[in-house]
Design a binder for these strands. Sequence first.
DNA 1: GTAACCACTTTCAAAAGTAAAGTAATGCCT
DNA 2: AGGCATTACTTTACTTTTGAAAGTGGTTAC
Lengths: 108, 108
Amino acid sequence: MSDKKVEKCGERCALQEILDVIGGKWSMSIIYALFSGKKRFSELERLIPGINTRMLVKELKNMEANGIITREVFATVPPTVEYTLTTKGEKLEASINELYKWGMEYVA
Amino acid sequence: MSDKKVEKCGERCALQEILDVIGGKWSMSIIYALFSGKKRFSELERLIPGINTRMLVKELKNMEANGIITREVFATVPPTVEYTLTTKGEKLEASINELYKWGMEYVA
DNA sequence: GTAACCACTTTCAAAAGTAAAGTAATGCCT
DNA sequence: AGGCATTACTTTACTTTTGAAAGTGGTTAC
């Protein structure tokens, strides 16, 4: 009766968590961009070609809610916001690099 | 002017390829199910709770087009169709297992 | 004073996803 | 012989998500 989540869905639960974090169309690009250190909103926008503001905002919010990034606001002028990977986020590096290698190898 | 794809987008191209394959809402679940061997359409439907027929069809077609699964039809009655991972598909196992471990570790 | 910078928000159309029912060929049961 | 089940999908109608573009508000450089 304890260990709820693991007991309840185990494998599939992990899968759900993963998909919620990296399943989105842009999440992986964002995480990838953040591997090289914290970034401001506009930096991310420039680093990820094709993304639009709305989606970047949404994904960042989702990632913050999922605990894989932190958002820090600076009362500068103009205002500055920095996004950083948490430990949980950083731990995705191995997985994403693996996927990445696969992608590089299999681009037809 | 040659080596088009690599030259044109390099890193980002690999990312696109990856997302096209595992970025869809259900792709990873399907690939995961196929790691344990070929499956029929209805087996996949049963193995992946929550998916609907239309989406399963769509994802399978997409995966076939992406060369990560093969589709084999048997003229039995009722007809049987088997889906199998290609080598390209199988090569995703390491990456997905990595992600998987992450998911298991960080399910809050 | 007006144009630009930053980090968003809003609006609306388009694309993607979901649910549920339908299709065609056959076999099994009664 | 009629009806139901099985398999692998289609089709239709609908909801949700995403995308493109313009707008907001405070400040500062020109």
